[in-house]
């Protein structure tokens, strides 16, 4: 690596002569070693999924959760340094609560992504801290109507300045990915962690930005998410893993606008299908190999 030995990579917030902050780039490396996380946004809602590598047989199965609920309608999953992720989630919960206190309404997914992007960025500014060793995927479903909040006194204007634009649709599913630099984008399908490349390739096949995204149901998205985690794990086959999945639908959907764990029956069905899909893939490949040998 060209950075090593130049001295510009020894402290956070230091620019190298060509304008790079190496410590942030190294933080990204920490993310790339972590278990794969993905998010899928479809019309009906958002699915978050994570591959949890089982580092020890002595871990209690299904007891250590990695996808956090930040507010009723918001979830965060992250890859990289897990204690950093916990801290990040704590901060996100603080932001969500502060927003409710101030504005008497739940924080929007985009607003939370913005706040947390800013928080992440602040940790690239000073030599006295290090950047976060995580990339976080934020998923949420914003309500399209104002919901009353406890302690609410009156309400703002319904249109015009500071209010809503008449005829415009508000709310709906949101998915954002925040990197250690603080950079964040909105996504139709997001992937990070060790298996991100394979996962991205699979996400692109779903054509979420095109007609594929229009037609994909939330339940199908759950099944695709499970399959993608299984595909992404493929390169890492010798280690066992646990799949954790959560989803958020609109008020008419299965979770009634809440961020919840995918019900066990559906998750197990999705895992069964994922394994089946992998097996048939392997058979095809083996078939090809046989032909080549002939």
């Amino acid at each position: 690596m060209t950075s090593i030995g130049t001295g510009y990579d020894l402290a956070n917030s230091i620019f190298s002569p060509d304008g790079r902050n190496f410590q942030v780039e190294y933080a990204v490396k920490a993310v790339e070693n972590g278990g794969t996380s993905i998010g899928i946004r479809c019309k009906e809602g958002v699915v978050l999924a994570v591959e949890k590598i089982i580092t020890s047989k002595l871990l209690k199965p299904n007891a250590n959760k990695r996808i956090a609920t930040v507010d009723r309608h918001l979830g965060i999953v992250y890859s990289g340094m897990i204690p950093d992720g916990r801290h990040f989630v704590d901060r996100a919960r603080d932001e969500a609560r502060a927003w409710r206190d101030t504005f008497k309404s739940p924080i929007g997914t985009a607003d939370l992504a913005s706040r947390m992007g800013g928080y992440m960025q602040a940790y690239t500014l000073y030599q006295s801290v290090r950047p976060f060793g995580i990339t976080a995927i934020v998923g949420g479903y914003d309500p399209s109507v104002d919901l009353p909040v406890d302690g609410e006194v009156g309400r703002g204007p319904s249109c015009g300045a500071g209010g809503k634009i008449p005829g415009k649709n508000f709310g709906g599913p949101g998915l954002y990915m925040i990197e250690p630099s603080g950079l964040y984008w909105g996504y139709y399908g997001a992937a990070t962690g060790k298996g991100r490349q394979a996962a991205k390739a699979e996400l692109e096949k779903l054509d979420l930005a095109g007609p594929g995204g229009e037609s994909l149901t939330l339940e199908q998205a759950v099944k695709e998410a499970a399959r993608i985690i299984y595909v992404a794990h493929d390169d890492n086959k010798d280690k066992d893993f646990e799949l954790e999945m959560t989803w958020i639908s609109g008020p008419e959907g299965p979770t009634k606008g809440l961020h919840q764990e995918v019900p066990r029956a559906l998750r197990e069905e999705a895992e069964r299908l994922a394994k089946k899909a992998l097996e048939s893939d392997d058979e095809e490949e083996e078939g090809k190999d046989d032909k080549m040998e002939e």
Binding site: M1, S3, I4, D9, L10, A11, N12, F22, Q23, Y26, A27, V28, K29, A30, V31, E32, N33, Q127, S128, V129, R130, P131, G133
Partner: peptide
């Protein structure tokens, strides 16, 4: 190893020594 003096320095591999 210059990357192991404090807990705010990542190594090029993304480790904190």
């Amino acid at each position: 190893n210059n990357y192991d003096n404090d807990s705010v320095t990542f190594s090029p591999q993304g480790r904190i020594f």
